[in-house]
Design a protein around this nucleic acid. Structure first.
Length: 112
DNA sequence: CTAGTGACTGTTT
DNA sequence: AAAACAGCCACTA
């Protein structure tokens, strides 16, 4: 047969990033740069973020487990609720934030 | 083709 | 430690 099961045509090549993000375990986080490197695109951290921003609402990708290299949840457009939602989802999984809203990467970074 | 942009990052103030 | 800078790379107009 060999018919291609393309529900969502990946015209922009985001799948390699999603494939990595799907492997991040509960209660762990990865940085954008880390995801890019594991996807075989070292230095393309911005593209990793771009790919997540393009994620459809109904997805099975744990996008909330990706944060920036400083251990903080990256803010989106002013007034966007996604950063707050992301922090909530992580707290539910047991990821701790310090008083400045940052995650201790030495402790919670996913080490594949 | 150039210019602007962004869920980024490492270095320098 | 926080902010500013300067690279970074793909997408858009």
């Amino acid at each position: 047969m060999g018919f291609v099961t393309r529900r969502r045509p990946d015209t922009k090549g985001h799948e390699p990033f999603y494939a990595i993000v799907r492997r991040i375990p509960r209660g762990r986080v990865a940085t954008y740069g880390q995801v890019a490197a594991l996807a075989g695109r070292p230095g393309a951290a911005r593209q990793a973020g771009y790919a997540l921003a393009a994620l459809p609402a109904d997805n099975e990708v744990p996008w909330h487990r990706v944060i920036n290299a400083r251990g903080e949840v990256s803010e989106r457009a002013p007034g966007s609720p996604f950063a707050r939602i992301q922090r909530d989802l992580l707290r539910v999984e047991g990821v701790a934030f310090d008083d400045r809203g940052r995650v201790d990467l030495a402790r919670f970074r996913w080490d594949p």
